[in-house]
């Protein structure tokens, strides 16, 4: 009994949106939570943030970027096909209240994780500033959606192809230096980006929440591979998180633990690409 793909949309060169039929997950999901899915019988269990739900239709939206074999494999699934396993909602929901002015910073693919939060924050009465950052213009995602939901919207690109040239932290720093009062920051993106945001907001004494993306296997608190150090204490990101106080997170440890299987991941991905090539044109092209 699989989980049917109701809709599939290509968002960018490597990012895909899928709506999956999983009524129980849809029913109880809240912003900040994630699912673990396994595309096929021999697949890995991979965590993906819930980008949205439609409780009436029983739909759960996921957005993912192709970074290795498992996500590549998932991206090859078409509408009407079924994903083998899909469990959730997992993790703790984001604590949402009326903070005042909230800056939401999305770096690269982290923007997809930020999206459900940006949707939920205005309902609680917050003033929303969104900074959507990417390496280059063609990698920016969810631009229209985030612009519509925010009171102030900024874009940064590393190469200056769109918006402010630089990082999301440059945009945030500029706002703060111009005297903008910010009560809370949410930042999701690559580890170095979240680390620099944490450093900056610590100087300005603004409470900052980050959503961490360590390696997970079961995602239910059973294996402990996702352990992170927060304020000197070991936490399991799958059940204690995935969101934590950025000023307490040991980003260096997170970065190292994320690299644990880099070589095997690369090997398995290359093997898979070769297989796909072989299937596409048997023998030699």
């Amino acid at each position: 009994m699989g989980f049917k793909i109701l809709e599939k949309i290509q968002l960018g060169p490597d990012s895909t949106l899928m709506k999956i039929y999983a009524p129980y997950v849809a029913k109880n999901a809240k912003p900040g939570q994630f699912v673990i899915l396994r595309a096929h019988e021999k697949g890995e269990r991979i965590p993906l943030t819930i980008a949205g739900t439609d409780k009436m239709k029983g739909e759960v939206t996921i957005i993912f970027q192709v970074v290795g074999k498992s996500t590549k494999h998932l991206s090859l699934f078409e509408e009407g096909e079924e994903i083998h396993d899909f469990v959730g909602p997992l993790g703790k929901p984001t604590e949402i209240e009326n903070f005042g002015t909230v800056a939401c910073l999305g770096g690269g693919f982290g923007t997809a994780v930020l999206y459900p939060l940006v949707r939920a924050l205005p309902e609680a009465g917050n003033y929303i500033i969104v900074v959507n950052g990417a390496r280059s213009e063609n990698l920016l995602i969810l631009e229209n959606e985030l612009r519509d939901l925010s009171n102030e919207y900024y874009v940064t690109t590393d190469d200056g192809t769109k918006g402010i040239k630089g990082f999301v932290t440059d945009a945030l720093k500029k706002l703060l230096e111009e005297g903008k009062h910010i009560d809370r920051v949410f930042a999701v993106g690559p580890v170095p980006m979240m680390n620099s945001v944490a450093k900056l907001t610590k100087e300005w004494n603004i409470k900052t929440i980050v959503s961490l993306n360590p390696i997970m296997v079961d995602g239910t608190g059973m294996c402990g591979v996702c352990r992170v150090s927060v304020g000197g204490e070991t936490k399991f990101a799958c059940v204690d998180g995935p969101e934590f106080d950025a000023h307490l997170v040991d980003f260096d440890l997170l970065m190292k633990r994320l690299a644990m299987y880099k070589d095997l991941e690369k090997y398995s991905y290359e093997l898979f690409l070769k297989e796909l090539e072989e299937k596409r044109c048997p023998g030699k092209c």
């Binding site: 021999k42 494999h73 299987y261 095997l264 398995s268």
Partner: peptide, 8 residues
């Protein structure tokens, strides 16, 4: 790599 999950 027949199964996708690695171990070291």
């Amino acid at each position: 790599p027949e199964y996708d999950t690695p171990i070291k």
